[in-house]
């Protein structure tokens, strides 16, 4: 009974938790971008949602091992990361041409945005459900 109560409390916590949902969105996007079921991800520098709930993502310790890099800043980005697919967490990250897309808050709502040319540069093909998030 006590265990059941614990489960119920945890479920309430998990699903009342924006962090878990944020991770689910990252999972969805990163799996689509990398076309891998269990992509390897390097986080530069921190992302509480993915660190807490990695889901299907394997968090790695260096850019070398990574399929994609989630960036919270572009400042002092390690050289090894620059060759990888970069995905931003702020609208301002998209000002850098190397960043293919971003998941960010703006104007009071969460947004996902990709640039078509940048996706093409990395030969990334997203399925039709992503069309509304791609700017031509």
């Amino acid at each position: 009974m006590r265990a059941l109560l614990f489960i119920l409390i945890c479920i309430r916590t998990v699903f009342a938790n924006d962090v878990a949902l944020e991770s689910a969105i990252f999972n969805k996007v990163i799996i689509a971008v990398t076309t891998k079921e269990y992509p390897e991800v390097y986080i530069y520098k921190e992302n509480k949602a993915l660190e807490q709930f990695p889901g299907k993502l394997k968090i790695v310790n260096s850019c070398k091992e990574a399929d994609i890099v989630i960036i919270t800043t572009l400042k002092n980005l390690p050289e090894a990361c620059k060759e990888k697919i970069l995905f931003g967490t702020r609208y301002s990250h998209l000002r850098d041409n190397r960043v293919v897309g971003a998941f960010f808050w703006q104007k009071g709502r969460p947004n996902i945005l990709f640039y078509k040319r940048r996706l093409e540069r990395y030969n990334i093909k997203l399925d039709a459900s992503f069309d509304k998030y791609i700017e031509k």
């Binding site: 699903f15 878990a20 996007v29 299907k56 459900s129």
Partner: peptide, 10 residues
């Protein structure tokens, strides 16, 4: 959590 979180569309 996996079933519920990853079942929904974006």
């Amino acid at each position: 959590s996996s079933v519920i979180l990853f079942a929904d569309d974006l």
